[in-house]
Nucleic acid binder design. Structure first.
Lengths: 346, 346
DNA sequence: CCAAAAACTGGGAGCGCTCCCAGGAATGCG
DNA sequence: CGCATTCCTGGGAGCGCTCCCAGTTTTTGG
């Protein structure tokens, strides 16, 4: 067996020891040079960096995290039935935002879809296995068993939106859903509308519940009657379309509708168009999400309650870092403000 | 300092040594029992399992992968400009499918969005850092510098769709884009249509190019003239709508259109509706993707060329496993067949 | 010019695991 | 009953890294 060179040839991956040898310094010095901490002379640092580049060195993460007890990875868990997820542009935006925000702090995102019962076990096992330093969880459904299962975790967890069944003791970053709905409906009231319907989201989700209650409260405050004017959708396009036709059938006289998501609004618009209603003159429409690729692109462009996924994830990461810094930080509940983006549909 | 118990209390995480001690066996035996390999007596195995459960033991993955040289993770890289990605339901489906398929073989998916120039460096560094055992790459754009950069990787890579600028030497699983387009257009020809337009995808992507050429070839074979009947979209809803109105302006006499994606078809339908054309009697529409949450839900439901993301990812994972098994497997180019799903739009 | 401080270096220990190997216990068979 | 075979066990080495510490060199300043 003829083998050229020393260790690096063994399996193609040079180790820190190889770099050190090639640079003519010790492993310790090489480590200090590459992580630049501690005292290293400019000469040594230079030599080490050159050697590392020449050998194509990249540190073995497993070895590093074995001793540092840090993985440099954060999990983002999306707990939602499959079909929903595909349809929900807000979730897509969240993934993207998660990736960016975590990259900004030098962390890798590990995306986890948790849906079925067996997913739950696997998810918990994974998260508890030391693969990641922290977890961001989106589990909108109130009956979701995941949040309870996550209590046993030994790593920091931050929730995006209310965590099912865990009022206290967890870190949450949510949007002001009720406030946003009030904003939207108040705007419709001020514009002179009197028969303001709503297409609500599924009432097993806090966000949907809060948006519905915001609508109801604002109507009552304005002395308007909400009876017969609410219909529940499922946050999908077809769900929105169906809810809209139900509403039209029941209350053909409605003059405005507050829709709890952009996607459902897309469906509602389709129904309104084929029913020959003009927007906003016959029926004004205001929705919720203000998704960048949906709301402004519709016909007509939608007035929508603006919530920025990036902002939410940013706040979540901020909280996560705080918890990693101080393990028994007292639970933080942050409610982010929302605003109304005014467009042609109202 | 009063401290109860032994090591486990130190930082809350019991080690294999702790489990072994608690079970009254050696570390080696405990390891064998938990990974069930080698010889372990039923008695020992039982004791170890009980101890592990009681202590809430979960193995330290860093330590394990340090010695096994396996991480149990596979990266899925999506290289695409931000805006595109949000809009593209096929990509969402790919993420989901990737998660499922990888979970099935006991691997964790690490999702990576690579978009900007700096992403590229970070991505390569990460992939080469030993975080993952293999990579699945979706880089549809021909000018994308990523595939070239990935050549230096020391771990297996499999591409979904043609890899930019790398004809040979890489593993690819693609769909038969040209064949699918031919299927679609042939169907329109057989139904008696003669002025068959197309809304193509961006011509910097292989898939889009192949679909366009499939359309062209089929027309020529049928003795039809493709002149003035092709318009380029960008795979988005609004892009599809715009392309459709351009086509209508140029060729008001068109009687069918082959659209290169469901999303663009959604836009095209909108334009056709507001132009008062009836579907399929005035204009027949056939699209590409057959996305489960789009094609069947449209008005009318779309005839579409069916390609299953799950099938593609499955084949990619299969290939990946083969390469991990045999590092210098000769490059595999798999082309998956597609079929036509017939619905009301044609 | 010399002691103290600061700057720098290398070796050793050890993170928690798997794998190899030597040795002991149980079992088989002539 | 003796010996080979299978079964089972524990100890040791070592994966590649970081951190600690002791030792050496350089710089500082009275």
């Amino acid at each position: 067996m003829t083998r050229v060179g020393a260790r690096p040839e063994e399996d193609g991956r040079p180790t820190l020891e190889d770099v050190a040898a090639s640079a003519g310094v010790s492993r310790s010095t090489a480590s200090r040079a590459l992580n630049d901490d501690g005292y290293v002379s400019a000469r040594s640092r230079e030599k080490v960096q050159v050697a590392a580049r020449e050998l194509g060195y990249s540190p073995n993460q497993a070895a590093r995290s074995l001793v540092t007890r840090r993985t440099g990875a954060v999990a983002v868990v999306l707990s939602e039935p499959e079909a929903r997820l595909l349809d929900d542009p807000y979730r897509t935006a969240v993934m993207r935002a998660g990736y960016r925000e975590l990259a900004d702090i030098g962390c890798q995102m590990v995306l986890i879809f948790s849906d079925t019962r067996e997913d739950l076990d696997r998810t918990v096992r994974f998260l508890d296995g030391g693969h990641v330093d922290g977890v961001l969880v989106f589990a909108p459904h109130r009956t979701d068993p995941l949040p309870k299962a996550l209590r046993q975790l030994r790593i920091p967890v931050v929730y995006g939106g209310q965590a099912a069944g865990l009022k206290r003791g967890v870190h949450v970053v949510d949007f002001d859903n009720e406030g946003g709905a009030k904003l939207a409906v108040a705007h419709l009231v001020e514009s002179g509308h009197r028969r303001i319907a709503t297409i609500a989201g599924p009432q097993d989700q806090s966000a949907a519940i809060d948006r519905l209650s915001g609508w109801r409260k604002t109507l009552l405050d304005a002395g308007l009657d909400p009876a017969d004017l609410a219909e529940e959708g499922d946050f999908t396009l077809t769900g929105g379309a169906k809810a809209m036709s139900n509403l039209l059938a029941r209350r053909p006289d409605l003059d405005a509708v507050f829709v709890a998501s952009d996607m459902m609004a897309l469906g509602a618009l389709r129904t309104l168009h084929s029913a020959g209603r003009r927007i906003p003159s016959d029926v004004a429409v205001v929705s919720f999400d203000d998704n960048a690729t949906l709301a402004p692109e519709m016909d007509p462009p939608l007035t929508s309650v603006h919530q920025d996924p990036r902002e939410q994830v940013h706040a979540m990461v901020e909280t996560l870092l705080a918890v990693m810094d101080d393990r028994d930080l007292k639970p933080r509940q942050r409610i982010l403000p929302v605003s109304l983006t005014h467009r042609a549909s109202s």
